[in-house]
């Protein structure tokens, strides 16, 4: 083919592009990609390496053994410590060796606020406000105002459930 010079050059370009693509491809694909399936195998360990933030009530009891004893003896054992107080990881880190460095401030304040909560009426309402869909066996009130009026008390903006109830035992103070 004497007059096919331009096609030869074109095919050469295609060949260079194809080889270049295959070379780059071989360089950029992670070594563990496709070992088990069509994915990067170490993505599994990446995910598994994340630190659990909820430590469980047993972990809380290691230090707060007095409250834990009160809690286990009471009638309010289904919600765990961290349900109302938030995840314990940051708190434990802070009080044990202060290794919270490296975590963003926003997250730290978020957890600090959570661990100190459990004093308002907000947390109680999550479960104990009457809604139509809740089972009747669950002790619930239609509204805080009505509940207090029924108990001959006065409702002020500062009124908290914990004024009368012990949240750890669910027994009236």
């Amino acid at each position: 083919m004497r007059h096919a010079g331009h096609f030869v050059r074109l095919l050469a370009l295609v060949a260079i592009a194809a080889v270049g693509f295959l070379f780059v491809r071989s360089q950029v694909i992670p070594k563990d990609f496709g070992v088990k399936g069509h994915y990067r195998l170490s993505a599994v360990s990446d995910e598994a390496a994340r630190e659990p933030r909820h430590l469980g009530s047993e972990a809380c009891a290691e230090c707060h053994d007095d409250i834990a004893a009160e809690w286990t003896a009471g009638k309010h054992t289904t919600p765990q410590c961290e349900n109302c107080h938030g995840p314990g990881l940051m708190h434990v880190k802070k009080v044990s060796d202060d290794s919270t460095a490296g975590y963003p401030d926003k997250i730290l304040t978020q957890y600090e606020n959570a661990i100190n909560r459990g004093t308002g009426i907000h947390e109680c309402r999550w479960c104990h406000l009457k809604t139509f869909e809740r089972p009747s066996t669950l002790k619930s009130i239609a509204s805080v105002e009505k509940h207090i009026a029924l108990r001959k008390g006065t409702f002020t903006p500062d009124t908290k459930c914990t004024d009368c109830h012990n949240p750890h035992t669910a027994i009236a103070k």
Partner: peptide, 19 residues
């Protein structure tokens, strides 16, 4: 753009047409 090949002979053109 011509990939450095300036061959526009009738044979080359005929080949082009076929491709």
């Amino acid at each position: 753009l011509a990939l450095g090949v300036l061959d526009i002979s009738e044979e080359a053109k005929a080949l082009d047409r076929r491709v």
